[in-house]
Computed example of a mutant assay.
Amino acid sequence: MARLAAMPFLRRKLVMLAWPPAMVLWGLGLTFANGAYVARRYGRGMIGQFADQMRLAFTQGIPVNFFYTYELHERRNWPRARDYVLRGHIKGGCQLYKRLYRDDPARRVSAKLLNDKLAFHQFCYAHSLPTARLFAIVSKGTFGWTDPSQITLPTVDLFLKPRKENGGSGAERWAYIEGRYHRHGHSTSLDAKGLTERLVELSRNQAYLVYECLANHPDVSDLSAGALCTLRLHTMLNEEGEPEHLFTMFRMSQFRERIVDTQDGIASAVDPLTGILGPASNSSPVARWMDHHPVTNARITGRTIPYWREALALALATHAELKALYLIGWDIAITARGPVILEANKAPDLEIEQRLDGPWGNGRFGELIAFHLTHRVRDASHRQNSASAESRATAL
């Protein structure tokens, strides 16, 4: 397989040894979680489902965790099984994302901007882009206020997150009620002094950013169990070097204790022309389709996202400012004041996207990845030949 061939020798041998038992054990667990439901709905018994997982894993290299996510329990879907872009393709052995930026220092420097939440926030502020208000940067116990006149935490709901973490790791949400800050999902309640002291302790290991806590637009507030909903909007440079919209999904939390929608949430595809939502789904291990929110029971399918056209235009225009980046996965909140950029990801995962939208390997994503990789090699060769020519000219 291409992913194995791309790996270093020792890592390849370890993967080859670990793969069989890992797939068997993982497959058994997934079959117990999903098998009875699939058997009732589709008529394929649990033993048959497990056998199919093993067949796909050992003949086509499809990890078992994608079997139910991409509904490969239906054999009519098997012909397109290898068209899915797996994590191993983009971030594992094949490292397609890294290969895009290889041998291009200028693009790599631009890509680093998205790894630093503070740097990206400053970029948005400098370009007058809508983003969450940043109150302070706390590093090694020291507060750096964005407003020099501010000397204490504001009396509003706050969202704290590490400067260089992803997926909501390390983040905290604090609601301001009657003079105290209450941590979401915990019984902790602190006054301004207590929360300041907590931030000082948190920042000793890594810098923290103190943001305003945004709220969902009233028209979609019932589509969340509590966390802020976000659009994950994918844009990619096309053959002309212009940003092109690939796909957007609307992410919703389904557990009240979660503070971000990426933690065990659900998502629904957004119609690019109308902003209307399709049926929602989770990912794994027990993937299901749903027309209503599992907690609020609000209707999802058929709902229209407020400010959809503005959100799409915002992502495309901002990508045009970041043309060194091939692909960006935007996190955009829809609030009462309009779309607000939260983050931008240069190497987004594609698992739930492909459950909602079908395989991307044989679609526009695959076409553009192939185009950019081909031209990257040509550009690198051209730069190398130009450098060699200049060296020969200098020598003469």
Rank of each mutant, 00 (worst) to 15 (best):
G361N: 03
I266K: 04
E178T: 06
S221K: 14
V38W: 12
P243Y: 04
T196L: 00
A370Q: 13
D271Q: 00
G167A: 15
H89D: 15
R163G: 08
C229S: 13
R183V: 00
H292N: 11
V64R: 10
N297P: 00
S189I: 15
D116H: 13
Y84E: 00
P306C: 04
T304Q: 15
I341C: 00
N65T: 14
N34F: 13
Y211T: 01
G61M: 06
N216F: 08
E353C: 10
Y211D: 03
V38Q: 13
E390A: 13
A298V: 07
L314Y: 12
A387R: 14
C229F: 07
N385G: 05
P243V: 00
L25C: 12
R55T: 09
A136G: 06
F365G: 00
T69Q: 10
S149W: 04
T155E: 08
L237W: 07
I328S: 03
G88V: 08
L160P: 05
A393R: 14
R107T: 13
L25R: 15
N345W: 08
L14E: 08
T296I: 09
F120T: 07
A51Y: 05
A207T: 15
R41V: 13
D52Q: 14
G275L: 01
A387P: 03
E343I: 08
F143L: 03
R107C: 07
L114W: 07
E239M: 02
Y307P: 00
V64K: 11
E310G: 00
L233Q: 08
V286L: 11
F32C: 03
R392F: 02
R102Q: 10
A18L: 14
I177Y: 02
R87D: 09
T318I: 08
H372Y: 12
V295Q: 08
S139G: 06
T188C: 01
R378D: 04
R3C: 07
L342C: 10
Y181S: 00
L195P: 02
I369P: 05
L195H: 03
R180K: 07
Q384K: 13
K161Q: 13
K140Y: 11
H184V: 11
D104T: 10
P218T: 05
S381H: 06
I300N: 05
F66T: 10
P218L: 02
A280N: 01
Q206W: 02
W19L: 13
H217I: 04
A227M: 03
L158D: 10
R309A: 14
V295N: 01
A315R: 03
V340A: 00
L273C: 03
L17I: 09
W289P: 00
G167R: 15
